[in-house]
């Protein structure tokens, strides 16, 4: 059971929303789809779900196109959250899960299980509009997973959550993965992607600008980050060739350099200038890679 996307394209008139992405996600993997707003993530998800047809290319799950006949195999958490504001948690999950082919008693049992897990069992008969945003999100998440899908698509699952709830949801995602569900998710919070994903694709203007195993990408990435803790001005480092930027913080600076060889030069420079409490050369964070690739003209 693998998700295969082959040369997927979607054009709206002249605008290329998705422009030829190809990828494979194996069973039980968590796959990260990154990109600035408007990079083509949601359109890709909609094509995976079969909500819109691709202009070219195809998406298959388990060697077949996903259609409404196989809708119970898929769980979806859309980027724009939405539930019936006037219905209670129970009422709407019963409706949404019956659409996935579940039986009412099973649904109720699962609802109670998940509410318990999210520590909000008292919400069963509350209307959605009475819940806080974070709690609505838990219900939204339940609407994507209660029917135990084989393929789970999470569009920005952690946005708007406080750290405690975000961790709770992250735990749930990992548990679901352990049960064998394949998960594709997108996020703007790079630390979440780093924690959860093995493979990623980074989109810009509908094209993949970076793709592959996250660890490999980071290791082979030329750019390095140097963290320096020192008591004097580090601005002068900007003048060294190969330094991309100097990001000053309260007790030093984080400096991005083109390659490891520049680090040596910087080391000499700071050593000449005075005492250094910390000097560390790290692989770049995904955050930096994201800014490097997808940044700039991110808003289309």
């Amino acid at each position: 059971m693998t998700l295969v996307i082959n040369n997927l394209k979607k054009r709206f008139d002249e605008h290329r929303a998705v422009d030829g992405i190809t990828l494979t996600v194996g069973k039980g993997e968590i796959f990260g789809m990154l990109g600035a707003n408007g990079a083509g993530k949601t359109t890709s998800f909609r094509m995976i779900l079969g909500l819109i047809d691709p202009t070219e290319g195809f998406v298959t799950w388990d060697a077949e196109r996903l259609s409404y006949k196989r809708t119970k195999l898929v769980g979806y958490l859309p980027e724009e959250r939405g539930l019936f504001p006037k219905l209670t948690v129970k009422e709407q999950l019963i409706y949404l899960m019956r659409l996935k082919g579940m039986k009412k008693p099973d649904i109720i049992r699962e609802i109670r299980h998940w509410l318990q897990r999210f520590q909000v069992p008292e919400y069963e008969n509350k209307r959605i509009e009475e819940l806080s945003k974070g709690n609505q999100q838990k219900i939204q998440f339940m609407a994507a997973v209660i029917h135990k899908p084989d393929l789970l698509i999470l569009d920005e699952p952690f946005s708007g959550l406080d750290p405690v709830n975000a961790d709770m949801l992250k735990e749930a995602v990992l548990d679901i993965q352990r049960e064998g569900t394949t998960i594709v998710f997108s996020s703007h919070q790079m630390n979440n992607v780093e924690e959860l994903c093995e493979d990623i694709i980074m989109l810009k203007h509908g094209k993949a600008v970076l793709q592959g195993n996250l660890r490999d990408i980071k290791r082979s990435y030329g750019m390095k980050t140097i963290t320096i803790k020192a008591d004097y001005e580090l601005d002068f480092l900007k003048n060294i060739k190969g330094v991309l930027n100097v990001d000053k913080n309260k007790d030093g600076a984080a400096i991005n350099v083109e390659s490891e060889s520049i680090a040596e030069e910087i080391f000499k420079e700071v050593a000449n200038s005075g005492f250094v409490r910390k000097f560390e050369v790290e692989e770049p964070s995904l955050h930096d890679i994201f800014i490097d690739h997808a940044g700039g003209d991110s808003d289309e």
């Binding site: 909500l51 409404y68 809708t71 979806y76 939405g82 019936f84 949404l96």
Partner: peptide, 19 residues
Amino acid sequence: TEKSSRVMELIVSSINPVT
């Protein structure tokens, strides 16, 4: 109303919009 509450996208991911 279903559209404005954005629950529509979730619904049509499970059921054909025509149905």
